[in-house]
Design a protein around this nucleic acid. Structure first.
Lengths: 204, 204
DNA sequence: AATTGCATGTAACAGGTTACATGATTGC
DNA sequence: GCAATCATGTAACCTGTTACATGCAATT
C-alpha cells in the first residue's frame, strides 16, 4: 500500500495529473518505488473515493481534458499518519542471492555471466542515483524544486538533507552489491584454477 | 516465478514433502526467498502438472498420508535452464527509502523512531545470516549436509564456497543498511541542534 | 500531413498475503 | 488424555504486470 503514499508525497508539492505523476515515477520517486501507469490511474480513483485527493478537471484544447488531483486535508493527514506509523517491511525475495546460493550447479562460464550481469545491473542503478545526488546538490530536480517552493525557507536545509541521505543509502547499497559480485568473480576464477590443478584438461 | 526454482533447488537434494519444504523455507532458502505454506502446496501441484516433480504417496500411521516429491529429469533440466538464463531483476520497491526521502515532513522524534526500527530490523536479519555463516563453516546446516551427500566430493568445496559467498553478501547488505540508518540518526540530531540554535525553545 | 508527446484508461493474468479449515500422529 | 507438531489444503483478496486501446494537441 505504499503506492498511495508515494503518490501523496508527490501531490503534496501541488496538484498534478495522472500523467504528471506517471512521469515523476520514472525519474524521482520511481527511484525508490516503481509503478506503471496502469496502476497509477486506478489508484488515483480509489484515493478520490477514499477522500484523500480531489480531482479538478481542466480543459485542454477544444475537447481534451486533464484531471489535476489536489491533496485534501484528509489526504494530508493520511500521509503524516503513514510517516508516523511503523513501516511494514517486505519479506525477503531476492532472486540474485537465491541463484548465487546454487552457482555450483552451473559452469564457471555461466556463473561469470550471471555475476557480470549483476554488476551491470547495479552499475546502471548506481549511475542513476549518483546523477540524482549531483542534481540534489545543484537543487536541479524538478520535484525537489516544487517541494521547496511550498516549504518555509527555514526547512529547506532539512528537506534537502533527507533527500541526500536517501540517495546516499541507495548509492552505498549499489556499491555493496557490485563489490560482492566482483568478489564472486574472483571466487569463480579461484575455484576454476584449483579444479584445473587437480584435473588438468589442456595439458599432455 | 522464482518460487518454483527455490523448491526445485531444495528437492534436488532428495525427495521432500510439502511440509518439509515449508520448514526449509523458514530456515534455509527462506533467508533469500520467503514463501508461506499456502503458496507452496498449490505450486507443488502445478509443478507436478508441468512434469517437473513426481509425487510419491507415503502411508503415515493408519490413515495419514504424506506426499514426497521427487525431481524428474524435466525438473532437473528446468532448474539448470533457469540457472543459465538471464535473471529477471525486480523493479525497485523500497518502502524504507521511500519514507526516508520525506523524513522532513515528520518530527525528529518520529524520524528517530523510524531509523531505530530500521536498525533493529536489519540487526535481526544480520544475526540470522551471521549464524548461518557459522553453520556453513561447521557444515551444520541440514540442507547443506543433504546437498553434499548427493554431490561428488570433488565438488564439496565449490558448493560450500558459493553458500558462503551468498551469505557474505547478505551480511554486507545488512551492515550497509545499519550504517546508513546510524548516519541518519546523526543527521536528525545535527538538524535538531541547528534548528534549536536558530530558534531556541527551552531558553528565556 | 505526420510525428511526438499528452492524456486517459481497461482487461486478463500472475504472484503473493491473510485468514480460514481440517485432521492425524507422536511424545509426554 | 493432552499438547505439540505433522500434514494438507481452500478462498478471498490485494498488488502488480503485460498487453491492449483510444484519441487529442502541439510541433515540424
Amino acid at each position: 500500500m505504499s503506492l498511495r503514499y508515494a503518490l501523496l508525497a508527490l501531490l503534496r508539492t501541488g496538484p498534478l495529473s495522472g500523467y504528471d505523476l506517471q512521469k515523476q515515477f520514472s525519474v524521482s520517486v520511481g527511484h525508490v518505488w516503481h509503478a506503471p501507469d496502469s496502476q497509477i490511474y486506478p489508484e488515483l480513483r480509489r484515493m478520490h473515493v477514499d477522500g484523500l485527493i480531489e480531482p479538478e478537471e481542466q480543459v485542454r484544447g477544444v475537447r481534451g481534458t486533464r484531471i489535476l488531483y489536489h491533496v485534501t486535508e484528509t489526504g494530508d493527514a493520511a500521509f503524516l499518519d503513514w510517516m508516523n506509523s511503523p513501516l511494514e517491511y517486505q519479506r525477503v525475495r531476492d532472486p540474485a542471492h537465491l541463484r548465487a546460493a546454487y552457482l555450483e550447479s552451473t559452469s564457471p562460464e555461466q556463473a561469470t555471466i550471471f555475476l557480470l550481469r549483476h554488476i551491470e545491473q547495479w552499475r546502471d542503478e548506481l549511475g542513476q542515483w549518483e546523477r540524482e545526488l549531483t542534481r540534489i546538490d545543484a537543487v536541479d530536480n524538478p520535484m525537489l524544486v516544487r517541494r521547496l517552493a511550498v516549504t518555509p525557507e527555514s526547512e529547506h536545509a532539512r528537506t534537502i538533507a533527507f533527500k541526500r541521505f536517501t540517495y546516499e543509502g541507495l548509492v552505498e547499497r549499489a556499491r555493496t552489491e557490485i563489490e560482492w559480485a566482483e568478489r564472486g568473480l574472483e571466487l569463480v576464477d579461484r575455484l576454476s584454477a584449483e579444479a584445473s590443478l587437480r584435473a588438468p584438461a589442456g595439458d599432455a
